[in-house]
Design a protein around this nucleic acid. Structure first.
Lengths: 255, 255
DNA sequence: CGCCAGGTTGAAAATTGTCAACACGTGTGG
DNA sequence: CCACACGTGTTGACAATTTTCAACCTGGCG
């Protein structure tokens, strides 16, 4: 059932895919594996690693330092692509681990290449998705470089809320969230203890509550203001002056 | 003179380009503009902005927060590509300013698209370059999130040294560097004052000196150790099991 | 029941930021 | 030629943020 996949749902925000393209997509997703939480999906320095589609569950990508510190780069949720660009190169520069049990499709690099060549509009949609990931990475860098602890926390949770909303996994004022305070700390460049304190302060100030695996926004507007959150970077749909950049301009199936 | 361009020199690390491909490249670079330092090259929120090749000089990309803080995302040097991926989307999410006087080519999005379609191996080389930028962004996030001030500083300067070495702008133990301490602070998420102090400490410890527009490494090995610097992420040349991923496998000009 | 991962809290220390002053070189206008 | 402004670098004193260490709590689960 293509139409129900979170992945298709996300790509559809960018272009309406044709039946043929949906087929190509379906073929990629045909093999699925179910993983327990804590499963390693790809490794730093690994060669010829596979690209992933995360169908269900949560994961995170991260980078490990020699001394054991780790920096989480991104939290991945249903419908996210992981490691597509880097799968084309010799070695991956990051690792990925599941947070909950998860369902994924793993795709070999040659397969990635063939798909991109055969379905150019699909390639464009995937490029769009990858591009959005990079926009999030940039915003993440701004978080860690130029925002204080509460701004970071607010920003991250608002971003997750936005992303989960798109795939129908958020209510207007909150979402289920399996992240531990350790995860938050490793993503935001803070210590667990400090994350804990800041969460408490936000709860006391009536901004939001993070408890029992749920995030609830008590004062969404206040939070957005605090974080300086502007969801623009998540939503850069459409091409600049080019309807269909990667397929021949006379392609009859376009639009 | 193709062979002398820093840009071609960099791409050549990845694939040896054919005469025809070098021609395509030359055509992109044919129009050049010389800019004074402090010139704005693209703007946050701008629509349909151009992709850039920086032929000479230094620039930086950054993101501005509503309250005036800024986070520098990347320093750009001769031979770097700027904003290629985002030029295909409706709006740019970052801004770019020159640090020194600079020579650039500006390329309209349609032109980017056409070039990528017409010269697939060129497209692959450009993808490789863009991909390397993202690896640097990741490393930058690790810097700011999980390294302390001196580690960050050391890591950034070692990375610049490596990159400048590739295009012949570094000696074994140092390089000319037009960055002010303000630039360093805005890139590393530190205050200027702190950057100053840390630089002094490093000078006193006999690690490196940054003075009069020059970086000099007194103890390169010590610095690398301090920073946990592993240049691997700058050097992921070659494709994973695929010689020439974006052109037909039977292309006679390949390899 | 007891273990264990995750969460919470306090006290003290380390890192980093802020403010304010001053040094130094360069270029400009009087 | 001098005076001055300006951008950049430097330093000290002090304050804020964040970390570290250590203890303790809580709930789920074998």
């Amino acid at each position: 059932m293509h139409a129900e996949s979170a992945f298709v749902r996300r790509l559809n925000r960018f272009v309406q895919l044709s039946r043929d393209e949906l087929d190509g997509l379906a073929r990629l997703q045909s093999q699925r594996r179910t993983l327990k939480n804590g499963a390693e999906l790809s490794w730093q320095g690994q060669t010829g690693h596979r690209a992933l589609i995360l169908h269900a569950g949560w994961a995170y990508t991260y980078k490990l330092l020699p001394d054991g510190r780790q920096q989480i780069l991104n939290f991945c949720v249903s419908g996210d692509l992981i490691g597509w660009r880097s799968s084309l190169f010799r070695s991956s520069d990051q690792a990925c681990t599941t947070i909950t049990s998860a369902v994924v499709s793993e795709i070999r690099p040659e397969r990635v290449r063939d798909t991109l060549l055969r379905w150019p509009r699909l390639a464009a949609a995937i490029l769009w998705s990858v591009s959005q990931d990079e926009a999030m990475l940039v915003e993440h860098l701004v978080d860690v470089g130029r925002r204080n602890a509460s701004e970071r926390l607010a920003h991250l949770l608002l971003e997750l809320h936005e992303r989960l909303g798109v795939i129908g996994l958020a209510t207007e004022r909150g979402f289920r969230c399996p992240l531990t305070q350790d995860h938050l700390a490793d993503a935001l460049g803070l210590s667990v203890v400090h994350v804990n304190r800041v969460l408490r302060r936000m709860r006391e100030r009536g901004l939001m509550a993070y408890r029992a695996g749920r995030v609830h926004f008590d004062d969404p507007a206040g939070l957005r203001q605090l974080a300086g959150f502007d969801e623009g970077y998540l939503d850069r749909a459409g091409w600049a002056g080019v309807v269909n950049p990667l397929s021949p301009p006379d392609d009859p199936s376009a639009i």
